Simulated assay, not measured.
Amino acid sequence: MELDKIENILEKYFQGETTIAEENQLKEYFSSSNVAQHLEQYKPVFGYFSQVKQQKSTQELENLTLTGETIPLKTKKRNLVWLSIAASVVVLLGIGTFFFAGEENNTTAVASQSELGTYDDPEEALAATQKALALLSNKVNVGIESVQYINEYEQSKNKIFKQ
């Protein structure tokens, strides 16, 4: 009679329809030594729970000291300390690089400012100014040519879509 009851509960278990009390009955049955021969194959499934329970209880025993107090587990505070040290080093390197690069740019800017506008000969200054304006004019003309392509595109689009 009990074997039929266990088989019915087992069938309900695999269909996911058991209650907690029925699952406890299965755990008790499969943890006992008198399991039916044809149900031996299910013993590891329900034996797992008792093994985990035993492992947990042995770990708790290992954590006890002679006085009966528990030993605190190691926290990850040490990793946090190393992480904060690494972050500080990165910030300091960033600040140092910023100031070092800033000083280098300041020295080159001072040197280039001293070279600007130092023509003694007016004809030489006129030639340099004309050269700079010709370069600027050339670049502006290239930009204007690009705008002309856009105008042609707009005209073609208007012809196709007839606004």
Rank of each mutant, 00 (worst) to 15 (best):
K74C: 02
E62R: 14
K76H: 04
T75F: 00
P44G: 11
Q59W: 11
L66D: 13
G96Q: 06
E62G: 13
E62W: 10
K56H: 05
N34I: 13
L73S: 11
G94D: 10
I95R: 06
Y42N: 12
V89T: 06
I95F: 07
K53V: 00
K56D: 04
W82K: 08
T70S: 15
K43H: 09
T58W: 14
V91G: 04
V90E: 02
L93P: 02
V52A: 01
V45P: 06
S57G: 07
P44A: 12
K77W: 02
A36C: 09
T67C: 13
G94V: 04
F98D: 10
Q54P: 01
E62Y: 12
L61P: 04
Q54C: 02
H38S: 15
F98C: 08
T75P: 00
F49W: 04
F46G: 09
E62N: 14
F99C: 06
L80R: 13
P72Y: 00
T67P: 08
L61G: 11
Q54W: 03
T67H: 13
T97P: 02
S50L: 07
A101I: 04
Y48H: 10
E60L: 12
E103N: 13
S50V: 08
A101Y: 05
K56L: 05
S84Q: 06
G102E: 03
A86M: 04
I95W: 06
K43E: 11
G96D: 06
R78S: 14
V90R: 01
E104Y: 07
A87M: 02
L83W: 02
P44D: 10
Q59V: 10
L92V: 09
F100D: 01
A101Q: 07
Y48M: 07
N63H: 15
T75H: 03
S33H: 12
A87C: 04
A36N: 12
I71R: 01
Q59C: 08
L64Q: 15
A87Y: 00
T67W: 12
G47C: 10
K56C: 07
E104L: 12
T58E: 15
